[in-house]
Amino acid sequence: MAAVIEIQNLVKNFVLPFTRKRIRALDSLSFSVQEGGIVGFLGANGAGKTTALKCILQLIFPDSGKIQIYGKEQSGQNLKSKIGFLTERPYFYDHLTGREFLKFCAQLYNSGEALSRVEPLLEEVGLGDRADRHLRKFSKGMLQRIGIAQALINDPKILILDEPMSGLDPDGRAEMSKIISKAHRRGATILFSTHLLPDVENLCERVIMIDNGKLVIESSVTELLSSHTSGYLLEFRKNQKIENKTFLTDSELQAGIDEVRKQGMTIERVAPIRPSLEEVFLKLKRATS
């Protein structure tokens, strides 16, 4: 599969006012996002996730490095017509109603197709009956929904979401996951940053982890979790009771299975003991720092 987004050696420094102290937000960051994937962009607060996403969208200009979209260093409106973006802490125009806001966003694409998506999208994000309320009366969850709707208004090929789940209750997160999955099924390549690792585990095929502006790991979720397998769990039935044993290595596990069989017990389950993504994240973060 071709890389839709390719970032090479991205460097961005911010200079603090008055003290003129330089803060390195991105430090030779390189990663790529393959076409059709859902990629989780992970990192602690201040790791540089939002800065990297804003560099892709040309909202922040990197000091050096290359950003290629569909194999080209794209700029201007051509790039933007392919992308949908949901900002962190979405705040939209207070004076507009949800429906007016979506229509306003659709008009900016100068296509009737975007305008025709307003009503279906309002239904899709569950705001069909509340779309005539002013945005200042929207709750955090409703703002997040209208935010994802405006990001999808142009049926984007690339969807960039900055903390789409933050501040949402479990129902809201489940709804948001559904919307993201649906956009993915429609063919969008999705890159989203988050702190909520269980959502990444459920939704993403790949993860990119950064710390202090540097890449820590870029891997598929399955490979990452498998490479951090800490042993195996063997469950077996003994005298109508289920018991279990853990083994550190593959050979120990084989010997354990043989022993259980020799004693005439039934094997119920054999499973690798995998850490959660959260545990892997913390482990990798400790290792890099």
Partner: peptide, 14 residues
């Protein structure tokens, strides 16, 4: 300040 500019400038508006 309210970051509405991010939403707007991520669309085809120079």
């Amino acid at each position: 300040e309210r970051q509405t500019v991010l939403t707007l400038l991520s669309k085809p508006v120079s």
